[in-house]
């Protein structure tokens, strides 16, 4: 494997894959349709639990 090829790979596909990933994460996290399940998940740790500690 040539050095130049590695640099080409990281400057093209490497960049695109990280950007695409970033966009995918933003879409998943900020999509209004997901808000309800995220709110439920955040509150889920308080459901049906005993509270002997505090």
């Amino acid at each position: 494997m040539e050095f130049g090829f590695l640099v080409y790979l990281s400057k093209s596909w490497g960049l695109f894959y990280l950007l695409a990933l970033f966009i995918a994460v933003l879409v998943y996290a900020l999509r209004p349709a997901n808000k309800k399940r995220f709110d439920e998940a955040a509150n889920s740790i308080f459901d049906d639990q005993d509270k002997p500690c505090r």
Binding site: V25, L26, Y28, A29, L30, F38, D39, A41, A42, N43, I45, F46
Partner: peptide, 10 residues
């Protein structure tokens, strides 16, 4: 609950 669940995912 955690302040922002979305921020925790990002």
């Amino acid at each position: 609950p955690i302040y922002s669940y979305r921020m925790s995912i990002i």
